[in-house]
Design a protein around this nucleic acid. Sequence first.
DNA 1: TTGAAAGCGCTAACAT
DNA 2: ATGTTAGCGCTTTCAA
Lengths: 367, 367
Amino acid sequence: MPEAVSRPTLEAVAARAGVSRATVSRVVNGGDGVREPLAERVRRAVEELGYVPNQAARSLVTRRHDAVAVVIAEPESRVFADPFFALQLRGISKELTAHDNQLVLLLTEGRPDHARVARYLAGGHVDGALVFSLHLDDPLPGLIRDAGVPTVFGGRPHWSEDTRDARPGRAGEGADRGVVYVDCDNRGGAHTAVRHLVDLGRRRVAHIAGALDQTSAVDRLDGYRDVMADVLGESDPRLVVESDFTPAGGERAMRELLDRCPDIDAVFAANDLTALGALRVLRESGRRVPEDVAVVGFDDMVPVAEQTEPPLTTVRQDIEEMGRLMARLLLRGLSEGRDGEHPAAGAQGAPGRGVILPTSLIRRASA
Amino acid sequence: MPEAVSRPTLEAVAARAGVSRATVSRVVNGGDGVREPLAERVRRAVEELGYVPNQAARSLVTRRHDAVAVVIAEPESRVFADPFFALQLRGISKELTAHDNQLVLLLTEGRPDHARVARYLAGGHVDGALVFSLHLDDPLPGLIRDAGVPTVFGGRPHWSEDTRDARPGRAGEGADRGVVYVDCDNRGGAHTAVRHLVDLGRRRVAHIAGALDQTSAVDRLDGYRDVMADVLGESDPRLVVESDFTPAGGERAMRELLDRCPDIDAVFAANDLTALGALRVLRESGRRVPEDVAVVGFDDMVPVAEQTEPPLTTVRQDIEEMGRLMARLLLRGLSEGRDGEHPAAGAQGAPGRGVILPTSLIRRASA
DNA sequence: TTGAAAGCGCTAACAT
DNA sequence: ATGTTAGCGCTTTCAA
């Protein structure tokens, strides 16, 4: 297989078309200000020579890269293993592609990688970054902020000071104004799920929470509490167990719950995987689902939710759309930054801090 | 948040260190041929200024990008949705990172994207490509070949003319010599799985094949046939059904199989998801697993395989390692291409055509 | 061992 | 509307 041979340059195209480099450049970049017959000649020359612009040369002068970094921290964690990220990436990819941007994927595992990523971003290799921050104590988001790269976060960062972070004493504390992020309505979705259980007549509704160092877990817990407080005046703290978003964790939590309160008549699990574990323990314990205990999950990971026994009622979020939206927000911010507007605002401009996507309840057999 | 401010240049570092640009360049790139005291001064200046080389400028002259494209065709398909790709990406990412290369992710959906990807690769934006080709009729691999970019394939391409493609009349036909690819030992893994079932005393062993336009499905089928022919002299064609790697497909196939041959005493499913569907139908039909029918899957997608009832015996492949290996092969080919050697060989050099990773049987309860 | 200088291929002022 | 020209920041001969 041949090495990449030297590609034709602008110069070559210009020679072939009998025009100057500037003219070719104009045609190649949108071509306004060039009379049609000439433009056509140039286009033909481009075609004949198979000319493709050298991006490096172009970036050198424009200081743009038409490339965006996607940073995913700790791919070991559950998140990367489930279809979640695949879908999100797909959404991001579609949007970037539609705007002729490339996707540079940065996966990190641990500290040394953080520095590497920060350096890369600070190095101005990409025009912006889409960052998935997962854990409360993750230093990466901070580093990235410091790198001064326009950024949109996936999932509410813990320092977002958003009002939906209902925990007193946290909101606003050390927070940044103007952080742009996209998330699904975790709290609202949880609300819907628990409401559904309550509407079914259930009163002893337990919650298996996710890892509470992730905002999604916290928000879902808050949504659960909203309803419980609303309906029952107060929620029995014994009905909540923290878990870790995994099936094994779900099993452990369910056992603990059953141990504490054998009279549970419903469970809202922080995600579908957790629900999977819970279902198994419920079955082992001789309880029928949904007759004895109704179960609702979160995520609607279809391959999982449809295959459980019974099929899982769960809260769906449009994951691909989240990805697409993140990319759109970033690109919009970038182009605004370029077009003057609020040059200093970059991606963190007008659109406001966070965009929350709606969720919906998918009813199957488990509740 | 500030826009990316103008970063310090080589020039600035040179001025600060009181040396020429050339000297700084030397130090930054490995620094041989520069006396220690000077080199040290340069390093300090780099440090103080927070200098990061401008990759565009560098690429412009070196014609290298230290970037590799990962092309994944049809992310709609099952492949992208399951943890498979996430793991593979992780392996690739680790290896690339270790060699200071960036990962440019190219996801495609359909024809228009093919052209786009081909153009991108031909445009010389990256040094090489890692390509996942899935389907027999996928034009992408061919386009990529024509683009003249050093490439390593993930999974045996259908035109690999490898000897493990046992189907007569196919081998060699229109094939390329020297295609580099990495795959797991699909045929051997299938062999092991079926052998295991036979060793358990099963004789009516059925196979639910994957989509036979993918080489992995074909190779697994071949492995199954190897053993059946070996043990029973010949395999009953009614024991094989083609499916599609999905749980729903597995259900359909299992029904069909049960219909044709109610006396089946074992099933080898093309992957774990298929096995999942098969298990459900088996249970519905009143058969016990493994007592009445033993079941073996393929992939060892842990979250699935451990959660089935009963837990699934399956063939494991080291997916992350496959990714890592692909990247390693490509980078090696690239550096050989650069260092002279067989400049024309590029990534398709000495290492030979395909690298096949071993598989292993993970025994759980289903067989 | 170090420095000076010539581009890499492109865009964007500025001329015409 | 088109051409001329001056770099973008870097590596890499070539000279010293």
